[in-house]
Lab assay of single mutants.
Amino acid sequence: EINVTSHGEEQAKHWIELAKRMNLDVEVEIHGDKIIITIK
């Protein structure tokens, strides 16, 4: 399980695309200006 804290939408999209390509599950939480991505 990987937790990524992203401070930008572009960076977040990059991680989500990467996870989808690798067929991994992704959870995205938004806390103000921080985007927390959990890849399982």
Results as ranks from 00 to 15, higher is better:
residue 22 M to F: 08
residue 32 G to V: 06
residue 39 I to T: 01
residue 38 T to D: 01
residue 13 K to L: 05
residue 13 K to R: 07
residue 8 G to A: 12
residue 31 H to F: 10
residue 6 S to D: 08
residue 28 V to L: 05
residue 16 I to S: 02
residue 9 E to N: 06
residue 24 L to H: 02
residue 35 I to E: 00
residue 28 V to K: 00
residue 40 K to E: 03
residue 18 L to F: 06
residue 4 V to A: 06
residue 18 L to R: 02
residue 26 V to M: 06
residue 11 Q to V: 08
residue 27 E to L: 11
residue 3 N to P: 09
residue 16 I to Y: 09
residue 27 E to P: 00
residue 5 T to P: 06
residue 33 D to F: 10
residue 29 E to F: 10
residue 1 E to C: 15
residue 29 E to H: 09
residue 37 I to K: 00
residue 25 D to Q: 10
residue 24 L to N: 02
residue 24 L to W: 11
residue 33 D to S: 11
residue 32 G to W: 11
residue 12 A to S: 04
residue 27 E to I: 12
residue 17 E to Y: 03
residue 5 T to A: 07
residue 26 V to Y: 09
residue 40 K to R: 09
residue 35 I to M: 03
residue 3 N to R: 15
residue 32 G to M: 08
residue 21 R to M: 14
residue 32 G to T: 06
residue 31 H to N: 09
residue 3 N to G: 07
residue 20 K to M: 13
residue 22 M to L: 13
residue 1 E to D: 07
residue 15 W to F: 12
residue 20 K to H: 07
residue 1 E to G: 10
residue 9 E to F: 14
residue 17 E to H: 05
residue 12 A to G: 05
residue 19 A to D: 13
residue 11 Q to G: 10
residue 39 I to L: 03
residue 12 A to W: 15
residue 31 H to R: 12
residue 20 K to C: 14
residue 11 Q to Y: 13
residue 36 I to V: 07
residue 26 V to P: 00
residue 34 K to M: 12
residue 23 N to L: 15
residue 29 E to I: 12
residue 8 G to T: 12
residue 40 K to Y: 03
residue 37 I to Q: 00
residue 34 K to Y: 13
residue 26 V to Q: 00
residue 34 K to G: 03
residue 28 V to D: 00
residue 6 S to N: 09
residue 4 V to D: 04
residue 39 I to Q: 00
residue 22 M to A: 03
residue 27 E to M: 13
residue 33 D to I: 10
residue 9 E to V: 10
residue 20 K to D: 09
residue 31 H to S: 05
residue 14 H to G: 06
residue 1 E to H: 12
residue 12 A to L: 15
residue 29 E to R: 07
residue 23 N to F: 14
residue 4 V to H: 06
residue 27 E to R: 11
residue 8 G to L: 15
residue 5 T to K: 10
residue 23 N to V: 15
residue 10 E to K: 11
residue 37 I to Y: 00
residue 40 K to C: 14
residue 14 H to P: 02
residue 35 I to W: 03
residue 16 I to A: 04
residue 21 R to A: 14
residue 33 D to W: 08
residue 22 M to C: 15
residue 18 L to V: 09
residue 14 H to A: 07
residue 17 E to D: 11
residue 9 E to S: 08
residue 24 L to R: 01
residue 4 V to K: 08
residue 27 E to T: 14
residue 20 K to G: 12
residue 19 A to G: 04
residue 37 I to T: 00
residue 33 D to M: 09
residue 4 V to Q: 09
residue 33 D to V: 04
residue 25 D to M: 13
residue 6 S to I: 15
residue 27 E to Q: 13
residue 33 D to H: 03
residue 11 Q to M: 13
residue 19 A to C: 15
